[in-house]
């Protein structure tokens, strides 16, 4: 179990060695239009394999900025960011695209399914751009999120919760070491939130690393650890430790 592994690694130095995500003095500054905004300020922390981390913080605190970098969609302006041992700064944009497809499975708040492809084809699309399509695997992935019987349906024929499950099936299909979820239940009602929460629990139990942005305390409570952001500053909570509430 992940917790068993992580609780034994309570020193930053030892964590760094088995970290799938490691940030060292990472900053992200947006410049332009005569002003500069430091959206992320000197962040140093790491996330180890199998960990479930919730990123919380008020609006404008830098959550998306952080997640963009963890998802290899953006790069730090200072500091080093290593994902699965590779330094992002050393990669060309094309290499970064490839790396992202390999390492990150995205779960979006708005699901982002292609409207003209069926549930099955949406999952296969991730295979297509990653390597090659395999219908059997794609079906298995849909079965896993309980959507096997809706494989031929278009996104418009699915409920929000069902679309999110397809999105999760798509995120899982290429076996990425990291699942990145941005407000995965932000657009869902209670019942569907529960289904998705259970799915994430299940994935965590089977060893997936999950990084999740959420406003919802209930969802955040499911994670092992919270990374709270405030004005671009990172506050890491110790693994399994008490949750400190931040001043807003």
């Amino acid at each position: 179990m992940a917790e068993v592994v992580t609780t034994s690694l309570n020193e930053n130095q030892t964590r760094a060695e088995c970290a799938v995500i490691a940030l060292e003095h990472v900053s992200r500054e947006y410049t332009g239009r005569g002003a500069s905004v430091r959206a992320l300020d000197d962040a140093t922390f790491s996330i180890v394999a199998g960990e479930w981390v919730a990123i919380t913080g008020p609006s404008g605190s830098g959550k998306s900025t952080l997640v963009n970098m963890l998802g290899c969609l953006d790069r730090p302006t200072a500091g080093t960011l290593k994902i699965d041992g590779a330094d992002l700064a050393a990669m060309s944009p094309t290499e970064l695209d490839r790396f992202r497809a390999d390492k990150i499975g995205f779960i979006f708040q708005q699901f982002h399914l292609i409207p003209y492809l069926s549930a099955l084809e949406n999952v296969m699309l991730a295979q297509y751009f990653h390597s090659m399509t395999d219908e059997k695997e794609a079906r298995a992935s849909l079965e896993r999120v309980g959507m096997g019987h809706r494989a031929q349906h278009l996104p418009s024929e699915l409920s929000g919760g069902e679309q999110q499950r397809v999105c999760i099936a798509r995120a899982l299909i290429n076996n990425p070491p990291i699942l990145l979820a941005d407000e995965p239940t932000g657009n869902l009602d209670q019942a569907n939130q529960k289904i998705v929460a259970n799915l994430l629990k299940d994935l965590h139990q089977t060893g997936h690393t999950i990084v999740m942005v959420t406003h919802d305390p209930e969802m955040a409570a499911l994670a092992q650890r919270k990374i709270a952001l405030s004005h671009g500053k990172v506050f890491c909570h110790p693994i399994g430790g008490p949750v400190v509430s931040l001043r807003r």
Binding site: G71, T94, D97, R98, A101, A126, F129
Partner: peptide
């Protein structure tokens, strides 16, 4: 653009 952005996020290359 959303669809294309998604394909890019899934590893679609500029060429594709």
């Amino acid at each position: 653009r959303r669809d294309f952005a998604l394909m890019k996020a899934l590893g679609g290359t500029q060429l594709q």
